[in-house]
Lab assay of single mutants.
Amino acid sequence: ENVVSAPMPGKVLRVLVRVGDRVRVGQGLLVLEAMKMENEIPSPRDGVVKRILVKEGEIVDTGQPKIELG
């Protein structure tokens, strides 16, 4: 899985990584606000952040790609 998608609709509060960052499985990639709760979205695997496809403040839909890992 190279693309991390939104598990639920919500607002991107914070992006916790930058392009080029090495990430580990379970590491937080971003914080999504859904139903007035903050949810940290974890990396599904070890890898390197290739692209960030969302911006802080953006509203995302379920299944929308957010971060691409290499």
Results as ranks from 00 to 15, higher is better:
Met8Asp: 02
Gly63Val: 04
Arg45Asn: 07
Gln64Gly: 05
Ser43Phe: 03
Val17Glu: 01
Val3Lys: 06
Gln64Asp: 09
Gly57His: 05
Glu58Gln: 13
Val17Thr: 03
Gly70Gln: 13
Lys55Trp: 09
Ile41Lys: 01
Val54Ser: 01
Thr62Glu: 13
Lys55Thr: 11
Ser5Tyr: 15
Met35Ala: 11
Gly26Tyr: 05
Arg14Ser: 06
Val15Ser: 00
Gly57Phe: 06
Asp46Ala: 11
Leu30Lys: 00
Leu69Ser: 01
Gln64Asn: 06
Arg18Thr: 10
Val12Ile: 13
Glu38Lys: 10
Arg18Cys: 12
Asp46Asn: 11
Gln27Phe: 04
Gly63Lys: 07
Pro9Cys: 11
Thr62Arg: 13
Val15Phe: 10
Lys11Ala: 04
Gly47Phe: 01
Asp21Trp: 10
Glu1Phe: 14
Leu32Glu: 00
Val25Leu: 12
Gly26Asp: 04
Met8Ser: 09
Pro9Asp: 06
Gly63Thr: 06
Glu1Ser: 14
Val4Gln: 04
Arg22Lys: 12
Ile67Val: 09
Pro7Met: 12
Asp46Gly: 07
Gln27Leu: 05
Lys66Leu: 15
Ser5Phe: 14
Val3Pro: 06
Glu56Met: 09
Gly26Gln: 04
Ile41Phe: 06
Val19Asn: 04
Ile41Asp: 01
Leu69Val: 08
Val25Glu: 12
Asp46Val: 07
Arg45Cys: 13
Lys55Met: 11
Leu13Trp: 02
Val17Met: 00
Ala34Thr: 13
Gly28Asp: 03
Gly63Gln: 06
Val19Arg: 06
Lys36Leu: 12
Gly10Pro: 03
Val25Pro: 07
Gly20Leu: 05
Met37Gly: 12
Val3Asp: 05
Glu68Tyr: 13
Leu29Met: 06
Gln27Val: 05
Ile52Asp: 02
Gly63Asn: 10
Glu56Thr: 08
Pro65Ser: 08
Glu40Met: 14
Asp21Gly: 04
Val25Ser: 10
Lys36Ala: 13
Gly10Phe: 06
Asp21Gln: 14
Leu32Asn: 00
Lys11Gln: 07
Gly10Ala: 07
Pro65Thr: 07
Val4Phe: 06
Arg22Met: 11
Val54Trp: 03
Pro7Ile: 10
Arg22His: 13
Pro9Met: 11
Arg24Leu: 10
Lys66Met: 15
Lys11Thr: 10
Ser43His: 02
Glu40Phe: 12
Gly20His: 06
Pro42Cys: 14
Gly26His: 06
Pro44His: 09
Pro44Tyr: 04
Pro7Ala: 12
Arg45Asp: 04
Gly10Ile: 05
Met8Tyr: 15
Lys55Arg: 12
Lys11Trp: 07
Asp21Ala: 06
Lys36Pro: 04
Val12Asn: 00
Leu53Val: 04
Ser5Trp: 12
Leu29Lys: 00
Leu29His: 00
Arg18Met: 11
Val3Cys: 14
Lys55Gln: 11
Lys66Phe: 15
Leu69Gly: 01
Glu68Thr: 10
Asp46Phe: 07
Val60Tyr: 05
Met8Val: 08
Val48Gly: 02
Gly47Asp: 03
Glu38Thr: 11
Gly57Glu: 04
Val31Phe: 04
Gly28Arg: 07
Glu33Tyr: 15
Ile59Leu: 13
Gly20Lys: 04
Lys50Ser: 10
Gly26Ala: 04
Asn39Phe: 15
Arg51Ala: 12
Ile52Gln: 02
Glu33Ile: 12
Ile67Gln: 02
Gly28Trp: 09
Gln27Glu: 07
Glu40Ala: 08
Gly20Phe: 06
Gln64Val: 08
Leu53Glu: 03
Arg45Val: 13
Pro65Ile: 11
Pro7Gln: 12
Val4His: 04
Gly47Thr: 03
Val31Thr: 07
Ile41Tyr: 05
Gly57Gln: 06
Val31Ala: 02
Ile41Ala: 01
Pro42Val: 14
Asp61Phe: 14
Lys50Leu: 15
Gln27Trp: 05
Pro44Met: 06
Met8Ala: 08
Arg22Cys: 13
Val19Thr: 07
Asp46Pro: 06
Glu68Pro: 03
Gly63Met: 08
Arg22Phe: 14
Leu13Asp: 02
Ala34Met: 11
Ile67Asp: 02
Gly20Val: 02
Ile52Ala: 02
Arg14Phe: 07
Arg24Ile: 11
Pro7Lys: 13
Leu69His: 01
Glu1Val: 14
Pro7Gly: 13
